[in-house]
Design a protein around this nucleic acid. Structure first.
Lengths: 204, 204
DNA sequence: ATATAACATGAATAATGTTCATATAATGAA
DNA sequence: TTCATTATATGAACATTATTCATGTTATAT
């Protein structure tokens, strides 16, 4: 999570010089560090500016509001999670494998950086629409992928199935974080408990 | 959600007179109304007090902080959800039926009062520990119930299974809210898509 | 070289969560 | 009843917040 490319996000002003690019990245990284230890509302704009060695006024050159730097972080996580998932399923030859690797990948990601939940789920408290947009668009692309593999599946409603699978993945991620599960424990839970249920239940 | 009994919750001072009991309930109901329209951080203590026709100082007689009235609402929802679930599964004669009715009950509850997510998931942003306590204790009692029905099940790790089922329920609830699903559409999704998967996957 | 756009600053403003000194109302023992 | 004690009520005062703005400095392109 340290790319230099600035994402296009409403309320975020893309800098036009190299200096500005460095500055906005400094602010984003400072915000990310602080939000990983405390919630959106416990972190003040002046905290972020102190952490980034920047004046408060400068913050508002790049972000129209405190909510907008949060929006930016949500967008960054979404992109990074999709990238991690795409990488993890690259070599898979069946939808069953894709599901198994996708679930494992997400849970490992979440354990390595539990901030995913703070940021993404926290968006519900920051701005409801941000949260809804995130999951609606995630579910839709998930459902399209399932539809493409329909001949391997025993399901008709791919959208509900997508929400079901997202729910399983997200809540097992929670369990893994709560219990501080190791990679081996994660693999065990997925291979021995979850995947057998899905294999019998939704695959031909 | 309008009982008079005050729950025992840290940071909440149980009133000792009838007058105090009325006052704290007025404050709680005012807070609940406001939090259903806006997030924890968009609602100020003085908003709550205005809505309850009460002075700010009075608020702090009953709640040590703004977080504590939120903690109280989370506790109230937890109790009420458990009550609704217990009622809905009262007549069930198998674990399969219990799961089906439980999922439907929760989703109907969530559609009727989407505030559940705002309050319970929002607690992640208000105070991480509140959120973790909620789900850890929910998962543990779910797992105990599954363990009692183990002879009907094809699973060994009941705790991971509990998290899986909680994930399915919660995310289908989200879908139902996002899409404004009717009771019939909810029943269809559960009966035709989700339950067949679970029936083949995790039941003997 | 210089005009223009981009970037940087921190004091000022209105609004926030919480405290406090002060007041009234309810309770229970004599 | 009397009166001492506890419970409840108040809103001005305080420190901190998100955001704005007038005033700079720096970078870029012609």
């Amino acid at each position: 999570m340290a790319e230099k490319q600035i994402l296009t996000v409403p309320g975020v002003h893309v800098p036009k010089t190299k200096v500005g690019l460095t500055k906005i990245n400094t602010l984003v990284e400072a915000a990310e560090r602080l939000f990983s230890r405390a919630s959106f509302f416990e972190v003040s704009v002046s905290d972020i500016c102190k952490e980034a060695h920047t004046a408060v006024g400068t913050f508002y050159i790049y972000f129209e509001s405190k909510t907008d730097i949060y929006r930016y972080l949500v967008a960054r996580y979404k992109k990074d999670i999709k990238r991690a998932l795409a990488e993890s399923i690259a070599g898979c030859t069946s939808r069953l494998e894709v599901e198994r690797e996708g679930i494992k990948c997400f849970i490992r990601y979440a354990v390595a950086d539990p901030n995913v939940y703070n940021i993404v789920w926290g968006s519900l408290a920051v701005e409801r629409q941000m949260f809804e947009d995130y999951y609606v668009s995630f579910a839709e692309s998930y459902a399209r992928a399932l539809a493409r593999a329909k001949d391997e599946l025993k399901v008709d409603d791919v959208l509900s199935t997508a929400y079901m699978l997202m729910g399983i993945t997200n809540f097992l991620g929670l369990q893994a974080i709560f219990e501080g599960m190791t990679d081996k424990q994660i693999d065990d839970a997925i291979d021995c408990t979850i995947m057998p249920i899905l294999e019998r239940g939704m695959f031909r």
